[in-house]
């Protein structure tokens, strides 16, 4: 079976950030992102300060800069669009290195790039200091609809099982001399996907049966109560509070 889900995003550690209760971290990261997106894009220096804040949190969590930057690459496909904006946007043009670019497009691109990067950086920090399981507990604690939390927790539990099933089906196909090598084979791959869906659906039914057999009646029992002290909340609030101060300065200056 593949590597454990816990080890892909999470970076084991014992920093004060790791020790914070998950719902505090979730709330802090969410508030931080809200503050960042509501900052005016003309306040370029404010985004610099946000980046400094993120770097400070990473340092407190003992996450190496290289690790954080590598994880940030995930946003590349999403910001590719931003790079196009200066070329396609309308309005006033400006010459940069011999290219004619739109001013509003440049501002738009900067806006998407800066806010996107900061948001992703905050999420990466959250994910690398909080185990997935703990995140679920945090979401539960923050009163996310229980059904959503249950679906997410089953995704974590059965992701590997289903991947493994897919891998076995692929081995079985190849053992009978099949290599997918072009459009003619899409039919076979589509049937594999269909078979996987049926199998997963049936597994879902069997899991439900096992749950009902152990007294499941529609809601997951709360086994680990995540509790946060006032001090922990205050500690987690430092990041969004500092960001809010920066944001207010950005609006007034």
């Amino acid at each position: 079976m593949g590597a454990g889900h816990a080890h892909k995003l999470y970076r084991h550690g014992h920093s004060p950030i790791h020790a914070l209760p998950p719902h505090c971290k979730l709330a802090a990261a969410f508030a931080f992102v809200l503050v960042v997106v509501s900052t005016p894009r003309e306040a370029v220096w404010a985004f610099g300060l946000y980046a400094v804040l993120i770097a400070a949190v990473a340092a407190a969590a003992r996450i190496p800069a290289g690790f954080l930057l590598r994880r940030l690459l995930i946003e590349v496909p999403f910001v590719a669009f931003a790079v196009l904006m200066p070329f396609v946007a309308q309005g006033e043009r400006v010459e940069v290195l011999g290219l004619s670019l739109s001013v509003s497009g440049l501002w738009g691109a900067w806006n998407v790039l800066a806010k996107g990067t900061l948001g992703v950086a905050a999420s990466v920090l959250l994910a690398s200091t909080t185990e997935l399981r703990a995140l679920l507990l945090g979401l539960q604690r923050l009163k996310l609809p229980p059904l959503l939390v249950q679906i997410a927790s089953f995704m974590i539990r059965y992701g590997d099982v289903i991947t493994d099933e897919l891998r076995r089906m692929s081995i079985a196909r190849r053992s009978r001399g099949f290599e997918a090598s072009g459009i003619r084979h899409w039919g076979v791959l589509a049937k594999t996907a269909g078979a996987l869906f049926i199998r997963s659906y049936e597994r879902g039914e069997r899991v439900h049966l096992a749950m009902v057999s152990r007294g499941y009646a529609g809601s997951m029992p709360v086994i680990d109560e995540a509790v946060a002290t006032r001090a922990q909340w205050a500690y987690a609030a430092v990041l969004p509070a500092a960001a809010l101060a920066v944001c207010l300065m950005g609006w007034t200056l």
């Binding site: 927790s153 539990r157 899991v207 049966l209 096992a210």
Partner: peptide, 11 residues
């Protein structure tokens, strides 16, 4: 149940 992957559904 026969398949422990059906029985064990928690993280």
């Amino acid at each position: 149940f026969q398949d422990p992957d059906d029985q064990l559904f928690m993280p």
